[in-house]
C-alpha cells in the first residue's frame, strides 16, 4: 500500500497477475488480441485506461516513466496520467525519451529512436483493425483465426479507385510477423515505419474493449499496401518553425485570424532538445515561440 491507501500502482495483486499472464501470451503471439478482465479505473474509459492498466502491471519502483499525448508531455491528459502514477506508484518521471524505461503514449511514437530494454505502452481506443468494416466481434475473431484479411485489402483498394489514394492517414493497419493484422492505435501513418523491427518491446492496451496485444522487439511489422501503390508517409514542405527539423511529424499551429500559421514538431521533447542543442527554425525568434512555450527561454 502506498500513502494514498490504494495498492502500488492502484491495481490489486490479483488483477496484476491476470494482466501479466495476458501480456506474456500477447508477447508469445505477436499482434493477436488477448482478452483480459479489464477493470474500471479512476480515469474514464477512452482516456487511456488500457494503457494505464498495462503500465500498472509492468511498472516497478526503479522504472522511469514518460507519458505523452499527441507527442507532447504537457497536454492535460498526459499530465493527468503521469500524476496518477507519481501519486499511486511514486515512480520517477521524465520527459526525456532516452531516459525513460516505460513510455505510455497516446497517438504518437517519439521521434528519438527507441532502445533495447525500453517498453512502449500504447493507449488503444479500438484494437480491432477491421471494426469499421465489420462491427461484429464474433466475425472478426473468425477472420483472424483464418488469417482472412482479403476485405481489408479490398477496402484500401476501393479508396485508391475512388480518391486516387489510400484514404487512411492514421491507425493505418499493419501485418505483424506475417500473420496477424493489427491496429497500431491511432498513430499517424508517419509513425508506422518505427514499429518495424523496433528494439523496444511494444505493448498495447485497450481498456474499454478489454484487449491487450504486443509486438516483441525485432519483429516484422508491415503496413498494408499494393505493388502499384506502395505505402508512403506524410511529408511537409517546410521544416519545423522552431527547431528546423525536417524529419519529424509537424503540428499545424494557427497563429491569427488572418490565416497565419506555422508548422512545429508534435514531439515537444524532441523539439526542445534540438533547440537546446542550438538548432533553429524559420520562426525561432518570433513571438510565437514564446507563446507556444516550447522555446528554451520560456517558462
Amino acid at each position: 500500500m502506498s500513502a494514498t491507501g490504494y495498492n502500488f500502482a492502484y491495481l490489486d495483486p490479483q488483477t496484476k497477475r491476470m494482466l501479466r499472464r495476458a501480456l506474456l501470451k500477447a508477447v508469445a503471439i505477436p499482434g493477436y488480441q488477448v482478452p483480459f478482465g479489464s477493470r474500471e479505473m479512476p480515469l474514464p474509459y477512452g482516456w487511456g485506461t488500457g494503457g494505464i492498466q498495462v503500465t500498472a502491471a509492468v511498472l516497478g519502483r526503479d522504472d522511469v516513466l514518460k507519458v505523452i499525448d499527441q507527442g507532447s508531455d504537457d497536454t492535460v491528459n498526459a499530465v493527468n496520467i503521469r500524476r496518477f502514477f507519481a501519486r499511486t506508484a511514486d515512480v520517477a518521471t521524465t520527459d526525456r525519451t532516452a531516459e525513460a524505461t516505460v513510455i505510455q503514449t497516446r497517438h504518437r511514437i517519439p521521434e528519438a529512436p527507441l532502445a533495447e530494454g525500453q517498453i512502449m505502452v500504447y493507449q488503444v481506443p479500438q484494437p480491432e483493425p477491421m471494426r469499421r468494416l465489420e462491427p461484429r466481434e464474433a466475425v472478426t475473431r473468425t477472420l483472424h483465426a483464418l488469417a482472412d484479411y482479403g476485405f481489408m485489402h479490398v477496402k484500401l483498394y476501393e479508396d485508391i479507385a475512388r480518391y486516387g489514394h489510400i484514404a487512411t492517414t492514421y491507425d493505418y493497419p499493419v501485418m505483424v510477423n506475417g500473420r496477424y493484422l493489427m491496429s497500431p492505435s491511432p498513430i499517424p501513418k508517419f509513425d508506422n515505419p518505427k514499429l518495424n523491427r523496433s528494439p523496444a518491446l511494444q505493448l498495447f492496451g485497450a481498456g474499454r474493449e478489454k484487449r491487450v496485444y504486443a509486438v516483441p522487439p525485432y519483429t516484422r511489422v508491415e503496413s498494408l499496401d499494393f505493388d502499384d501503390h506502395p505505402f508512403s508517409v506524410q511529408r511537409w514542405d517546410a521544416p519545423c518553425a522552431l527547431c528546423g527539423a525536417d524529419d519529424s511529424f509537424l503540428d499545424e499551429v494557427v497563429l491569427d485570424d488572418a490565416g497565419g500559421r506555422m508548422f512545429v514538431c508534435s514531439d515537444s521533447e524532441y523539439c526542445t532538445s534540438r533547440q537546446h542543442a542550438g538548432h533553429t527554425g524559420p520562426a525561432s525568434n518570433n513571438m510565437a515561440s514564446a507563446r507556444l512555450g516550447r522555446g528554451p527561454a520560456s517558462s
Binding site: 495483486p13 496484476k16 511498472l59
Partner: peptide
C-alpha cells in the same frame, strides 16, 4: 516482499519471452 518481488520477477519473465 510479495508485491515488489512479483513485479521484478514478472519483468524478468517478460524480458525472457521478449528475447
Amino acid at each position: 516482499q510479495p508485491e515488489d518481488d512479483a513485479q521484478r520477477v514478472f519483468r524478468v519473465l517478460l524480458d525472457a519471452l521478449s528475447h
